[in-house]
């Protein structure tokens, strides 16, 4: 749920990066952080285990600029991907305005992608959201690796709704901003229509 503050003339939106463990969610945020001008970003916070696996969430606040005199801020969150962190994932989805599903394109992660996407839909429903109605984009990450599932197949299995989709390599940054921009755009369009969820 976006937060519009007429007093400080700000608008805040929450974007959550979802996906199976090790698909590259944290790497997406790290790239955005590295490529964003210092005055447009806050600190990136990672609540991680000693082995750098996301424990609770990563958080990156971005201040992208003004629209119609309103400062537009996006708060980017990632969820921990491992199956047993489901309780934490539910908490992070609260008040979400848009979701990026980061898929791991490697063949051996196909089942994990499908499972995580199902899990996303169920956890959203628990909060009263319908994945088919909220701003939602899909990223096929790790497209640089040799053992990836063909795009057509990924598309058929993960994106039957035909939402905006991007191939990406988060480690080099390819596709990272395209993905972010697409979900941000869907959120703003939603706000324009006054049906912001």
């Amino acid at each position: 749920m976006s937060f519009i503050n007429y007093a400080s003339r700000e608008i805040n939106c929450k974007i959550v990066y979802y996906g199976p463990g090790l698909c590259g969610k944290t790497t997406n945020l790290q790239h955005v952080y590295q490529k964003t001008a210092p005055d447009a970003k806050g600190k990136m916070i990672s609540l991680a285990t000693e082995t750098e696996r996301t424990l609770f969430f990563d958080f990156l606040p971005l201040a992208l600029g003004e629209i119609r005199g309103f400062k537009t801020r996006f708060h980017l969150y990632t969820v921990p991907g491992q199956v047993f962190y489901d309780a934490s994932r539910k908490l992070i989805l609260k008040g979400v305005d848009g979701v990026v599903f980061v898929a791991d394109s490697q063949e051996e992660r196909l089942d994990a992608n499908i499972e995580s996407l199902d899990n996303l839909r169920i956890n959203l429903e628990e909060q009263g959201y319908d994945l088919d109605k909220i701003p939602f984009v899909i990223q096929y990450n790790k497209c640089d690796l040799p053992n990836v599932t063909p795009l057509e197949e990924l598309r058929a299995l993960l994106n039957p709704q035909n939402v905006p989709e991007f191939q990406a390599c988060a480690t080099t940054g390819e596709g990272v901003f395209e993905t972010l921009k697409a979900v941000a755009k869907l959120i703003l369009v939603e706000l324009r229509q006054g049906t912001g969820g």
Partner: peptide, 18 residues
């Protein structure tokens, strides 16, 4: 107070001052 399906959480000048 405000469920997930209401639209944005809005803050107005008057309440902000209060």
């Amino acid at each position: 107070m405000l469920g997930p399906n209401t639209s944005s959480f809005v803050m107005y000048d008057e309440e902000f001052k209060r």
